[in-house]
Simulated scan of single mutants.
Amino acid sequence: MMRVRKAVIPAAGLGTRFLPATKAQPKEMLPLVDKPIIQYVVEEAVASGIEDIIIVTSRGKRAIEDHFDRNLELELMLEGRNGELLAAVRRLSDMADIHFIRQKQPMGLGHAVYQARRHVGNEPFAVLLGDEVFIGATPCLKQLIDTYEETGGSVIAVRPVPLEEVSRYGVIAPEPAGERLHRAVDLVEKPSVTKAPSNLAIVGRYVLDPAIFEILSDLPPGRNGEIQLTDGLRELNRFSQVYAYEPAVKRYDVGEKLGFIQATIELALERNELADGLRVYLEDLVAGRPTANT
């Protein structure tokens, strides 16, 4: 079995939910405390053993490329002033081999993943969505890679959601296959509440067989007139078992305003230099007491 060493990060979306903040900057560059969203995603990939990363972008996303490139002027300024920041800045360009390719038309997640076919080749690969952040003792993607190595089949991350929210996700019809593990009997993109096969929703981490590329190459448009990755996985599942795994991690949907705010607060509370002051501020705010800025 080939090792999973390549990852695709689709980051071509327009970020309309965060306008006007995303009019001139990619949503993936919005900061969670002091790191952009995309950096959390790349760090998860690297911590999971990924060596080669393809980020699929679109027009107006140059800031993502610049973030992972060297900035010699900044490094020169930091030398002798702040060694810790200098090391953090230099590490960005050394974490992995990071490549960029453009999705020239917004034709859906399946189409975005398909853009990486020549770079991935005939290897199993990971997909990490650029607007979901997962935090856990063992990285979410590492849990999926371990499951792939155990089962030999494609693995997608799933989590239970309230039934009224299933129409926002791809959803699986599950068959138990172990602790936290399911065989996907079927996969449906954004079903109505009455037609959802379960409440197990697909969330933004995948380990996929490269056979998915041939399927995506002539897959007809699905929901919203786009090439949907879930539809491609449904076809793949006809001849190569797709598994679904419920990772033991905290997930933040940072593509939504509330999820972004929740992630910012909770990640800040994990920082020693911020936690005490922020906790006092939040307690005063909830209790209606005057805060430091009142």
Rank of each mutant, 00 (worst) to 15 (best):
N293S: 10
K250M: 06
R17H: 05
Y252T: 08
K257V: 13
A45L: 14
P221C: 03
V42N: 06
A177L: 05
L219C: 14
I172S: 02
R3G: 05
N224V: 08
I9P: 12
V33C: 07
Q25I: 15
L200D: 02
A177T: 06
V56T: 07
V42F: 02
Y169M: 00
L267Y: 02
G255Y: 01
D231L: 09
A24H: 15
E189H: 03
P124S: 11
N71F: 07
Q241L: 03
H182S: 07
I227P: 04
Y206T: 00
A263D: 05
G178H: 09
P176I: 12
V207H: 02
D231V: 00
K61Q: 08
E150V: 10
G110S: 08
V120H: 05
V193H: 11
I135V: 14
D146W: 03
D146T: 11
K104E: 10
R102Y: 11
V166Q: 00
V280F: 07
I9G: 02
S217C: 08
V158P: 04
N237M: 12
P197V: 02
L19A: 05
R159C: 12
P26N: 15
L181V: 08
L258H: 05
A287M: 13
T22Q: 00
D131W: 01
D276W: 07
Y281R: 13
N224T: 03
G255N: 04
A292Y: 14
N71I: 06
Y169G: 00
Y40D: 05
V89E: 15
A268I: 11
V89Q: 14
P221F: 00
A12D: 13
N224M: 12
F260I: 13
V242G: 06
R234K: 09
Q105G: 14
N82E: 11
I101L: 12
R62Q: 15
G152F: 04
Y169A: 00
Q25E: 12
P176E: 13
D146A: 12
F239V: 02
D209R: 01
A63E: 15
M2C: 04
A173E: 08
V161C: 03
V254Y: 02
I64L: 09
R117F: 09
I53Y: 01
E214R: 05
E75G: 02
A63S: 12
V254E: 01
V113I: 12
L74V: 15
E266R: 12
Q103E: 14
L78I: 04
H119P: 13
R17W: 10
L129W: 06
T22A: 01
K257C: 06
L128Q: 00
R17A: 02
D131N: 00
N224I: 04
I227A: 04
E164W: 15
I38G: 14
E246P: 07
D66S: 09
E84L: 09
K104F: 09
R168H: 07
A12G: 12
A7P: 11
I64G: 11
L269K: 06
V254P: 02
E246M: 13
S48C: 05
L163I: 07
